[in-house]
Design a protein around this nucleic acid. Structure first.
Length: 500
DNA sequence: CTTGCCGGGGT
DNA sequence: ACCCCGGCAAG
């Protein structure tokens, strides 16, 4: 057990979770599968070309795509580990920013806790193998690692928890790097992504069932869970249409993880874990300089823009460098289609961190989801409602016809709401309707799903069966002859014998 | 107060 | 699945 635990611990810290192993394309590009095929490495793409131990810039600023002839300079990516010599000592640092205009690299030296600026030529790539995966991972796990042809898929960090190769120290460094990176990239304050790195429960698909079960179990703490999890697109059940590599990795991973899944780990249990978090938001950066308002897709790009255009190119001083941060803002652009054909530019790797809060925005989706029998919603309807009816069946002795009625996804919504009675005040007509529905065999057509969804929690709202006129076993037989009561009556359930 | 029964817990 | 019961709401 102990060994198991330690093993789990290791896996749990998955900031560095590898989603996909980088691979060398024929032409020597070190890239992660899916991305390699992406034509549109959006502006500011920082994915580099691996060449002789260094990264060669293959795209930069807001103009870069693979089509562009790569410059001869190297490009370092935030978070990348590099070696520098500081005071005659070899240090490993994490790239914060690579300013290829000045050909300087701003980095953070972990061992010294220093932020430094180094000329490109003074910087060597450290542990290329490590650095890249990290970068790519980050990118991947934050963005959707969609194969070009693949349908929209959400990459949940919950899922992609590969075996860790590096040690705990590395992990911390990575974490630090990540935080630093994200901090240095935008003035927007944000909480660390730690919560996101919770290991994935079960095999990917089970996430959904699980979530459904959780809320069905009725714990009030999960009440919000559904609403969060039932976002229209966000919680798409993990797909596997990514690159074969990715797929296999995911599976092997989840498989391995199953072990500690079952562990009553508070993290797992308590964390409804953001399963949504979709890719429907695109991040762009807007220059805030008066009368500018330029939009760029990459942080690096915008920073550069600010620096060059507004702060003056020569800006070298640390202070100056930081200034740029204050002249741009991040803008989320909602994209209807969750199937973003192009991958987000790797440079936005840190963006998702920033977006997260935004993604939690009020979800209109719940309204739409039930209506469309998308594979997604059907997936949900398979799990959640199933549980719902399970509840009903629990009291099958009630022999209510409603049990047989086809369930639509929305029902469970109200169910889950029951757990959070106070959230919505008044009883909506719909609610009462669904009530009568179950009570008198639904003389009418199926409930309108979208309305139902909006219905308030049943809770204290007379969801309770209206007291029937008929005599009940209790009255008929009296307490003395309780043994003659119908079971339901004995169990204090709705009388089965003297139905209303 | 009594009654009906839901929701939930125990086995 | 079966059984029991706390507690709520209607009467």
């Amino acid at each position: 057990m102990a060994s198991m635990l330690s093993k789990r611990l290791g896996k749990r810290s998955l900031l560095g979770a590898r989603v996909c192993t980088p691979s060398l394309t024929p032409d020597g590009m070190l890239v992660e599968g899916p991305f390699a095929t992406q034509a549109d490495l959006s502006a500011g793409s920082n994915l580099g070309v691996y060449e002789g131990g260094c990264y060669k810039e293959c795209a930069e600023g807001n103009a870069g795509t693979f089509a562009n002839p790569p410059t001869s300079r190297f490009k370092l990516y935030p978070g990348q580990r590099v070696c520098i010599t500081h005071n005659g000592k070899e240090c490993i640092g994490l790239v914060e920013q690579h300013n290829h205009v000045d050909d300087e690299v701003k980095l953070f030296v972990l061992e010294l806790g220093l932020h430094l600026c180094r000329k490109m030529e003074d910087v060597r790539l450290a542990e290329a193998q490590k650095a890249v995966p990290y970068t790519v991972e980050q990118t991947l796990s934050m963005n959707h690692g969609v194969a070009p042809s693949a349908a929209p898929r959400s990459v949940s960090r919950n899922i992609d928890v590969p075996k860790r190769r590096s040690d705990a120290v590395d992990m911390d460094e990575m974490m630090a790097a990540m935080v630093l990176t994200s901090l240095s990239c935008s003035p927007i304050v944000q909480s660390p992504p730690c919560s996101d790195s919770i290991p994935a429960p079960q095999v990917t698909c089970d996430l959904w069932k699980e979530s459904g079960d959780v809320s069905d179990s009725g714990s009030s703490t999960t009440s919000g869970h559904w609403s969060a999890g039932s976002g229209v697109s966000t919680p798409s059940p993990p797909h596997t249409e990514a690159s074969p590599k990715y797929t296999s990795e995911v599976f092997s991973t989840s498989h391995v993880d199953e072990g500690f899944e079952t562990d009553p780990d508070p993290f797992l249990l308590d964390e409804p874990a953001p399963r949504k978090r979709k890719n429907s938001v695109k991040v762009m950066y807007k220059c805030l300089w008066p009368n500018c308002g330029k939009f760029l897709r990459s942080i690096v790009g915008i920073k550069r823009h600010v620096k060059i255009q507004h702060l003056g190119d020569g800006a070298d001083s640390d202070q100056r460098k930081r200034e740029e941060d204050f002249y741009y803002t991040e803008v989320q652009i909602k994209e209807e289609v969750e199937a973003e054909p192009t991958p987000k530019s790797p440079s936005t790797a840190t963006a998702p961190l920033l977006i997260q809060p935004v993604l939690h925005m009020p979800q209109t989706p719940p309204l739409e989801m039930p209506l469309t029998e998308s594979p997604l919603s059907s997936a949900l309807s398979q799990s959640a409602p199933g549980s719902f009816w399970h509840i009903q069946a629990d009291h099958a002795y009630q022999a209510l016809p409603s049990i047989q009625i086809p369930v639509s996804p929305h029902i469970f919504t109200s169910i889950s709401w029951a757990a959070a009675p106070s959230t919505i005040p008044a009883l909506s007509p719909i609610r009462s309707r669904s009530l009568s529905f179950s009570e008198q065999q639904a003389q009418t057509q199926p409930i309108k799903s979208h309305l139902i969804v909006a219905s308030p929690p049943r809770a204290s709202n007379g969801n309770r069966k209206v007291r029937g006129e008929a005599k009940k076993c209790r009255k008929v037989y009296g307490i003395e002859h309780r043994d003659q009561w119908c079971t339901a009556c004995r169990w204090k359930k709705a009388c089965q014998r003297f139905l209303d």
